[in-house]
């Protein structure tokens, strides 16, 4: 049986794009072209699935041309679109690295061309001391580092959303209440030492969380109320 391989020009073009998107030490378009030469060229058509969620992972793909839609089933059993992978995307490599099952379903959008690397070739190259082996390992490392950096950026955004939303949603009072006025006065009277203590408390985390701030404010209000009560008692 003859094996269809990617053309030299297409391999060179894809290798250049891969290196630009996933830089790594000692990167060479030529050597990466050889990596692609170890795979099989395959064309699939619009709507054709590349893999199904839960399938065992027995190959990975280098996207030469076209787009791949990535779907995952949510907790209610509905398939939801996660993302669209474009050239020069790497798909399905995680399942070969850790021998896990496919975490998503991948479907062709329009006509798609791929280089397919099966698990046998992957296992051989990933352990090789050759320049081709190094190129595959480092390309995958660079891709995973990029994915992890993106995940970190998303987490940062989630943390911001979680900690900022309540603050933004908090309604501003039309007029400051009498108690708030007193708090303001009390704050004005606070010594620089006390103010520094408050700043230190905020740096230790008090200032970063709404719940803690509200607790602190209530404590201040209690002190002010007691202070007012004492003054009233004194006048009487």
């Amino acid at each position: 049986m003859t094996r269809s391989v990617i053309g030299a020009d297409a391999a060179e073009r894809l290798a250049k794009l891969l290196v630009a998107n996933h830089p790594y030490p000692g990167a060479s378009d030529e050597v990466l072209g050889h990596v692609l030469g170890h795979g099989e060229f395959r064309a699939i058509h619009d709507g054709e699935p590349l893999c199904e969620e839960g399938d065992p992972g027995d190959e990975m793909w280098f996207l030469v041309r076209g787009k791949i839609m990535v779907q995952r089933t949510d907790s209610e059993g509905v398939k939801r679109e996660l993302s669209t992978v474009k050239t020069p995307g790497l798909i399905g490599h995680m399942a070969l690295i850790d021998r896990s099952r496919r975490s998503a379903t991948c479907i062709a959008i329009g006509d798609v061309e791929l280089v397919v690397m099966d698990a046998l070739v992957y296992d051989r190259l990933i352990a090789e001391a050759s320049a081709t082996g190094s190129a595959l390992r480092r390309l995958l490392l660079s891709s995973l580092c990029g994915q992890l950096a993106q995940a970190n950026a998303q987490i940062r955004k989630l943390v911001e959303d979680l900690t900022e939303e309540p603050r933004l949603a908090r309604p501003k009072p039309q007029k400051p209440s009498p108690v708030k006025k007193e708090v303001k006065k009390w704050r004005k009277k606070t010594s620089p030492e006390d103010q520094m203590t408050r700043v230190a408390a905020q740096l230790s985390g008090w200032g970063s969380e709404l719940a803690e701030l509200e607790k602190l404010e209530k404590e201040i209000e209690l002190v002010v109320d007691e202070d007012q009560k004492r003054r009233r008692d004194k006048v009487r």
Binding site: M94, I97, R137, R138, L140, L141, L144, C145, L148, A151
Partner: peptide, 17 residues
């Protein structure tokens, strides 16, 4: 080292996701 790193990054990514 590279093989160890591949396994580590894949594990971190799965766990993070």
């Amino acid at each position: 080292i590279e093989q160890q790193l591949l396994a580590t990054l894949a594990r971190r990514l799965r766990r993070t996701n």
